[in-house]
Design a protein around this nucleic acid. Structure first.
Length: 102
DNA sequence: AAAATGACGGTGT
DNA sequence: TACACCGCCATTT
């Protein structure tokens, strides 16, 4: 099982209507400081049917990138569509932030 | 095997 | 709050 396998697995486990930070995904994947590497893997999976990478945002709630359709704008719209609470151009992590399995 | 890259995070200015 | 710099990790060349 590779690091990426774990990352994708975590990404899939993010509840609908909530978002996880790259750092959180990295931590749940076993490498708390690998947020950067996580982002790379997300890029490889735009919006694959099994990996909702659009639910992964930066630590401050800001959206970084999105290789999927619509780019960041599309990503923001998608999250909004799932019920994620936005605060301006950033996600309200205090409300829609997901810190991992309860 | 080594160097370069990148959807990051934290700190400093 | 916004911008710049350094440090980190896994992947790719």
């Amino acid at each position: 099982m590779s690091f990426r396998e774990r990352v994708y697995r975590v990404t899939r486990s993010i509840p609908k209507g909530k978002v996880a930070t790259y750092a959180t995904v990295a931590e749940l994947s076993g490498s708390p400081r690998a947020a950067r590497a996580v982002g790379m893997l997300m890029r490889d999976n735009p919006d694959a049917p099994h990996t909702p990478c659009h639910r992964v945002v930066a630590s401050d709630g800001s959206l970084h990138g999105y290789s999927g359709d619509g780019g960041l704008a599309g990503k923001r719209r998608l999250l909004l569509s799932e019920g994620v609470v936005f605060r301006g151009s950033k996600v309200d992590l205090s409300r829609s932030g997901w810190a991992g399995p309860a």
